[in-house]
Simulated assay, not measured.
Amino acid sequence: MNVRDAKALQIASLETPTDLGSNAVRDISGALNILLADMFALYLKAKNFHWHMSGPHFRDYHLLLDEHAEQIFATTDAIAERVRKIGGTTLRSIGHIGCLQRFLDNDADYVTPLDMLAELRDDNKQLATNLRETHGLCDEHGDVASASLLENWVDQAERRTWFLFEATRRSNS
């Protein structure tokens, strides 16, 4: 067996039957993999802030960020499995996530609680925008199953944005 035949066998073993065209698989898989990288980056940022929370609202913020992180992490398997269901391949490493993620990491030694919440608020707002863009791509290719999943994740991102907005709102008193 030559190298070309061996590579063809490797690719063939990952091919999944789908009625989506090869362009659709390529485009949607690519977009979903970027979203998957974003979800992992946002999950880790939420956990980072959860672990390093301090101050008078510690308990409330600590629990809120843990809840948000769990919700974000819960999307990761569904996204990766959707990529595989349509015949694409998905992320394989932390390095791959780092190449694709659009959210900036926050490696600061200290971040104030309100700055943590504001950063996550803005990231979740951007995530909702990114999810909508991917939904549009799925609509273009007739991938109703991916679009349906994305609709739920948009709603979740908007809810997290709302909670984080309300938690960072300045009191009038």
Rank of each mutant, 00 (worst) to 15 (best):
D5T: 11
L14M: 14
T18F: 06
T18H: 10
D19Y: 09
D19Q: 14
D19L: 13
G21S: 15
S22P: 15
N23R: 15
D27S: 12
I28F: 04
L32C: 07
N33F: 03
N33L: 04
L36Y: 09
L36T: 05
D38I: 03
M39L: 07
M39P: 00
M39I: 01
F40W: 13
F40H: 14
Y43W: 13
N48Y: 06
W51L: 07
W51D: 08
G55P: 09
P56Y: 10
P56W: 07
H57P: 00
Y61D: 14
L63W: 07
L63F: 12
L64A: 13
D66N: 13
D66R: 05
H68Y: 02
E70P: 00
Q71F: 01
Q71C: 01
I72G: 00
A74S: 15
T75G: 01
T76N: 02
T76W: 04
T76D: 00
A78Y: 02
A78P: 00
A78C: 00
A80Q: 14
E81W: 05
E81D: 14
V83G: 04
G87P: 10
G88V: 09
T89P: 01
T90N: 10
L91S: 06
L91C: 03
H96D: 15
I97Q: 03
I97M: 11
C99S: 14
C99V: 11
L100M: 12
L100A: 09
Q101G: 01
N106T: 11
N106H: 08
D107M: 03
V111I: 12
T112N: 04
L114E: 08
M116N: 02
L117Y: 00
A118K: 09
R121E: 09
D122N: 11
D123H: 06
D123P: 00
D123N: 12
D123V: 01
Q126D: 11
A128G: 08
A128K: 03
N130R: 11
N130F: 11
L131K: 05
R132Q: 13
E133W: 02
T134Q: 05
C138T: 13
D143R: 12
S148Q: 12
L149A: 08
L149G: 03
W153V: 01
W153C: 02
V154H: 05
R159L: 10
R159H: 10
R160H: 15
T161F: 14
W162G: 02
W162P: 06
L164W: 03
L164Q: 08
A167L: 12
T168P: 02
T168K: 04
T168V: 12
R169C: 07
S171R: 10
